[in-house]
Amino acid sequence: MKKVLITGGAGFIGSNLALLLLSRGYEVTVLDNLSPQIHGEDAENASPLFLSIKNRVNFIKGTVTSKTDWENAINGQNIIVHYAAETGTGQSMYEIARYTEVNIQGTALMLDILANSKHNVEKVIVASSRSIYGEGKYYSDELNTYIYPKHRVSEFMDNGDFEVKYQGNVSPLKLVATDEESKIHPSSVYGITKQNQEQMIMTVCPTIGIAPVAFRYQNVYGPGQSLSNPYTGILSIFSTLIRNKKSINVFEDGKESRDFVFIDDVVHATYLGIVNNEANGQVFNVGSGVPTDVLTVAEMLIKHYDIRVPLNISGNYRTGDIRHNYADLNKINKTLGFVPAVDFETGIAKFVQWVNEQQISDDKFEESIAEMKEKGLFK
């Protein structure tokens, strides 16, 4: 029986993976600080995510910024799944020290222990992110080549022109799926930290006899995700606004798109990386492989909740946000046999059904926007 440590294992993805591993006979240890931003103020008694694994895993309340907590958690483990991280592109642009301390230094502490002490760890899986790609991959008919546009600038966005640009290219660019060989050029501090995490683990682990695997997750959603965190999770943010009967501020022109992947598919893909040696030393995209624009998301949620609220396509934008990005899944399909099983229409229905069973959360979105506006990061 393998012993698996999941850092951030009381979180959305981590707790779902823990439950799957328990059902398959693994012994699971979770290291988590039960962050109030994700779990609320009384996490140990009121967080549904934590309660789903409470008394079923070996739980260590601690932080990845503590070497002692890491040493206690790593002891006796065979596999580490590293999820613990500060998340959210917008917040990362003004809480830079916190994001780098947790995401980069926390990962460095783990690797330092693995490199300099005796242990039983044979594989490390890291949750990377589509954010490391920055803007996605495009094709230019005019230039007859694939290109990777630079980050968008205020000069155009202030005038309502939100599409990506490329020097010397006049005709519109064609969005294509982003594969694992695409250019890495994150547009946020969060993306930079995820790139750093991935590169450290993929570089260090092979030198000390540990198999690394990195999964570049797209936008993960589904039953169980935090409804109170205003900094990440567009489906949760929109759902809270709708249930509070407030209008939805759709940023840009509403045509910006994301690849929304259902939680069950993400957990399944990760499990395949745990059990298959073919995954060792590899980096994989995990997504649905389908782009969905933000306006469509808002309209679908309104339809499923059957609550009419105004949609305000405002032209507002956040510094660091990308225009488009969706995953090319050829590699993970050919290597691990992964095929996403839940389409967005089915997934959003399951999500809404679960949300309707929860208490209506207070809307803290405007507070988060006010923070960004004060920092000059919301236009």
Rank of each mutant, 00 (worst) to 15 (best):
M1Y: 05
V4P: 08
I6F: 10
G8Y: 03
E27H: 07
T29H: 04
L31I: 04
L31T: 00
D32R: 07
D32Y: 10
P36T: 06
E44A: 01
K54I: 04
V57F: 06
I60N: 07
A73K: 01
V81K: 10
A85S: 15
T89H: 10
M93W: 00
A97K: 15
R98E: 14
A108C: 14
L109Y: 11
M110A: 08
S117W: 03
N120T: 15
I125D: 15
V126H: 07
Y139E: 04
Y139W: 06
D141Q: 08
L143F: 11
T145M: 06
D161R: 06
V170E: 09
L175Q: 09
A177D: 10
H185R: 11
P186C: 05
V189M: 02
Q199S: 13
T203I: 00
C205Q: 14
T207E: 08
V213A: 10
F215V: 05
V220G: 06
L235D: 14
S236T: 01
S239C: 12
I242G: 09
I242Q: 07
R243V: 00
D265N: 02
D265T: 00
T270I: 04
N277L: 05
N277K: 13
V290I: 13
V294S: 02
M300P: 05
K303M: 10
P310I: 00
A327T: 06
L329W: 03
K334W: 04
T346F: 04
G347M: 02
E357R: 09
E367A: 02
S368A: 12
K373S: 08
K375A: 01
G376E: 10
L377P: 12
